[in-house]
């Protein structure tokens, strides 16, 4: 089953690996395939909006491109919407004190806040308002409490409306045809280590399946083996290098040094790629290139979307 054939994708990973850009690229890929997509920023930081060069979205989804809708999670708004739908409470703007209580309770029993966030997302999926919902989910660790929220609530809360809701939410999250997590990593030590830890935790602590690991910022291989031997000879002190300097001047050193650095960086990262492959052989891994020209913004999103659709075909 294709990654984008599911209906709910949680995109997560260590902070700083490009989770937001990858979420945006996944969404754009799906839109290009003719699907109606809701892109949800889970932590309200507004970076998704920045990736599309649009003003930050609120709780109510905004169509930012044909077929692509953007929203930012807001647990208080989610609670208000829920109360309106289920309790028919004439709350109006007067949620104030209740929201404060809620915030407070949610601080001690984290499942409560998470269930409101996951609840809203799951509701959009259940109601089929969109073909696909892509969540730019919280970073490693925090995402576990979100994905495990339905179970968590069932354990903590014996009765009440919220508990009742956890049943269908749990089913929806546990169905691998519907829901999956996508882990974003970069080929560096900590991101790979955290990705593997996260993979283990998602599998042991939640019922959500992991569809793929997207490895972002993969550096290009400069030389094949035979070329590398030639490069080494150029870079070493010796007749080749001195000839180059004699013809081109001292600038040669900078260019050779830059190529040597690029090769060493690539090599140290290749080791982490191998570690990731060996430790998670059963998870599809998708590589996205390091973008030298444009690391942020709409253009970067489009470049990654192109790379993704080539990889996913």
């Amino acid at each position: 089953m294709g990654l984008l054939d599911r209906r709910l994708l949680f995109v997560t990973g260590k902070g700083g690996v490009g989770k937001t850009t990858v979420s945006a690229a996944l969404a754009r890929c799906a839109v290009a395939g003719g699907r109606r997509v809701l892109l949800c920023q889970a932590d309200g930081a507004g970076s998704l909006a920045a990736a599309f060069d649009v003003p930050p979205a609120g709780f109510d989804p905004v169509e930012i491109e044909p077929g692509l809708h953007l929203m930012a999670m807001d647990t208080e708004a989610s609670l208000r919407e829920y109360l309106k739908l289920h309790l028919r409470l004439p709350l109006g703007g007067r949620l104030g004190p209740l929201a404060t209580v809620f915030d407070f309770v949610a601080g001690a029993a984290p499942g409560v806040k998470e269930i409101l966030s996951v609840g809203k997302i799951a509701y959009e999926v259940r109601e089929r308002h969109y073909d696909l919902v892509v969540v730019d989910a919280p970073a490693s660790g925090h995402v576990i409490s979100q994905l495990a929220a339905p179970q968590g609530i069932r354990e903590l809360v014996a009765v009440g409306l919220i508990r009742n809701e956890t049943e269908w939410m749990g089913d929806l999250l546990a169905d691998p045809e519907v829901t999956a997590a996508v882990l974003v990593a970069t080929p560096e030590e900590m991101p790979v280590t955290e990705t593997l830890e996260l993979l283990g935790r998602i599998r042991s602590e939640t019922e959500v399946s992991v569809a793929a690991i997207v490895v972002n910022r993969v550096l290009p291989e400069l030389f094949n083996r035979r070329e590398a031997a030639l490069f080494d000879r150029l870079a070493e002190p010796g007749d080749w290098r001195s000839e180059l300097v004699r013809h081109n001047g001292d600038a040669v050193h900078h260019v050779l040094e830059a190529a040597a650095l690029a090769t060493r960086l690539r090599r140290s990262r290749a080791a982490h790629l191998a570690r990731l492959r060996d430790a998670a052989p059963d998870v599809a891994q998708v590589y996205l290139p390091f973008l030298f020209a444009r690391p942020h913004g709409t253009r970067a999103v489009q470049l990654l979307a192109d790379a993704l659709s080539a990889e996913l075909d």
Binding site: L98, V105, A158, G160, L161, I162, R163
Partner: peptide
């Protein structure tokens, strides 16, 4: 009362 209904 609301909190009771929601959370038990």
């Amino acid at each position: 009362a609301v909190a009771d209904r929601l959370l038990g």
